[in-house]
Amino acid sequence: MAAEAEIVSQRIDKWLWAARFFKTRPLAVEAINGGHVHINKERVKPSRNVRPGDEIRITKGFETWVITVKGLNEQRRPASEARLLYEESEHHREQRAAVIEERRLHGVNIRVKKPGKHERRLIDQIKRSW
């Protein structure tokens, strides 16, 4: 058998899945087709190959990652190993953290949950008292 050849390029949808930016490849394809993924400042298709050294901009919800590809992996590995596939600059990491903090301060990310049984009864009592 031939020796295992090192990967020099990989499809962007498969790389995003392996690097754990998306839970499934179809979700990665949907984001790419929606224009939320750019390689070297160009909009791409899911079949576009990514190579080490490429800059990728990923927009997911209100968060944006600007990362540099450091490695390729055919399989989805644990998160600790997936973090080795890319590098995010300190400037972009701080920018993303600032956006998250600003949204938190303005109450945008507060999760609203349905009232429980006890809370519903209290709400009903207040309504009846009016």
Rank of each mutant, 00 (worst) to 15 (best):
A31M: 11
W65A: 11
K127Q: 09
V37K: 13
L85S: 09
K114H: 10
V112I: 13
E6H: 07
R104T: 09
K127F: 14
E88I: 10
R128M: 08
G116V: 01
V8T: 14
E6G: 05
V66K: 15
E81M: 13
I32N: 05
R76Q: 06
V50K: 04
I67H: 04
R96F: 03
E101T: 03
H36P: 00
I12D: 01
L84R: 13
E87K: 09
E30I: 01
I126Q: 15
P115G: 10
H38T: 08
E102K: 14
T24H: 13
L84M: 12
I39N: 06
K114Y: 07
L122P: 01
L105M: 11
K45Q: 14
T24K: 12
V44D: 05
V69H: 01
R121Y: 12
W17P: 00
I100V: 11
L105C: 01
T59N: 10
K41W: 08
D124P: 00
G35A: 07
E94C: 06
A97P: 00
V99E: 13
G34I: 02
H38I: 00
I123Y: 09
D13N: 10
I100G: 00
R57S: 06
F22S: 10
I123C: 03
A82P: 02
Q75S: 12
E81R: 15
P78W: 13
A98M: 10
G107E: 09
F22Q: 09
S129A: 15
R77A: 08
L72F: 12
E81N: 09
R20G: 02
S9C: 08
Q75C: 02
K127H: 08
A18Q: 04
A98I: 01
R128H: 11
R103I: 00
